[in-house]
Design a protein around this nucleic acid. Structure first.
Lengths: 219, 219
DNA sequence: CAACTTTGTAAAAGTTTTGACAAATGACAT
DNA sequence: ATGTCATTTGTCAAAACTTTTACAAAGTTG
């Protein structure tokens, strides 16, 4: 029914959400696209165009109400309800995500953590006990879980993704060095987070800047 | 001197690098843009066009030599030499990055880990002892460090970025919930990794797919 | 050598971002 | 209470950028 929203727009929405959160905390009630544009370093036109994809949230001569706009973006992103989540892989990254996702006020809630390694099974991370991955199917039958975060080695991630999808998971937050979206059905949402790729881009940018500004190391 | 390479191209290069690595490990010697296109699910034309920004790495009738192409991309990305790195913030995420970056064969090497918390100072992560953040200026004077990874709370990250830049760091890998690129000079490369934004996009995509395919949970 | 493969690249098509402005609203003076 | 000026949105069209298509030229293979 609704027109398709472009990926580029969706990519920017969480950033608007973050800036609006900072403004709200600072007690700011209203903001114009022009002022937000200055703070976020994007064009005012882009802000207005992005928001207009979802309806007219602003008012001429006034701007946008910070709290209202933030709530609307939350609805669009699905942050207006609890998204239950499990973490598969209880290494440092898995534990970091578990700690961290529970922090995101209301929206994401880690209800289970799993690992294959008997050494970590039983350990508690933020009140949640690490369970054996063998218990995943049973767990998913008895709990309402939306999202699974995968912090596993490449080979295991693919298998695990298959198992999770078979057991009703429709969203994968993938940290393994592989593209899980190419392996699962179309009705499963996948976000691949390839940290190494981000680090490589940083390395490229560093190299480019050195070439541009000269390689004057101080020492 | 060289023409400007578009961001979109740079974003894709690490992914080519990864796929070429898998192919090389599998003993594949040559690959055509057509075959790579099938595996990576991008158009062959895009692959050829992307690579051509940096020179003709392929040969008509043959395709690309896997090992050679991978090496050339490594050079472009600055992976052909060791990039020394420090990690500031020794929480789970910091430890995950430290473990993980040392894994990236040759290219990235974590030489120091820092934290403010006395409870973790002295602890060893992969042979590297966690030091007090107070020692950072001294450390940077006596070591050749290219990159700093920041896994700190928002408020501390901004201050720390300033300190690091003052002491000669020209690349920041930022995991704090703030946009450090807006705070540092133009000759400092910044990659902001906003995990929460990635999770929100996943939430959005999940919601969209539910609307498209219907919300038929099995249980 | 002839048939086949495959690149590199020019041009077309598609998408995204920016610029410009009419219409709406708010704020203030009288 | 009303008019005027300043502000700011929503939106259309232009500009910029990215991706795809198409194909000549080059190289490979048997």
């Amino acid at each position: 029914m609704g027109k398709e929203i472009s990926k580029a727009v969706i990519k920017r929405l969480p950033r608007y959400y973050r800036y609006l959160g900072v403004l709200e905390e600072a007690g700011v009630e209203r903001i114009s696209s022009g002022e937000l544009s200055r703070q976020m370093q994007v064009t005012a036109s882009q802000i207005r165009q992005d928001l207009n994809n979802f309806g007219g949230f602003g008012q001429q001569g006034y701007g946008y109400n910070v709290r209202y706009l933030r709530e609307e973006i939350a609805k669009i992103l699905g942050l207006d309800h609890v998204n239950n989540m499990i973490v598969v892989g209880a290494g440092h990254l898995g534990q970091a995500l578990a700690n961290y996702a529970n922090f995101e006020r209301n929206s994401f809630h880690v209800v289970g953590i799993f690992d294959v390694d008997p050494a970590v099974i039983g350990k508690k991370v933020r009140n949640v006990e690490v369970m054996s991955t063998e218990k995943i199917p049973e767990f998913l039958k008895t709990h309402d879980v939306e999202i699974a975060a995968l912090t596993l080695p490449r080979q295991q991630a693919a298998e695990m993704a298959e198992l999770l999808v078979k057991n009703g998971i429709h969203a994968l937050w993938n940290f393994a060095h592989t593209d899980l979206n190419l392996l699962v059905p179309d009705d499963v949402a996948v976000q691949n987070v390839h940290l190494s790729e981000s680090l490589m881009r940083l390395s490229y940018n560093l190299k480019s800047l050195k070439e541009k500004y000269g390689n004057n190391n101080k020492d």
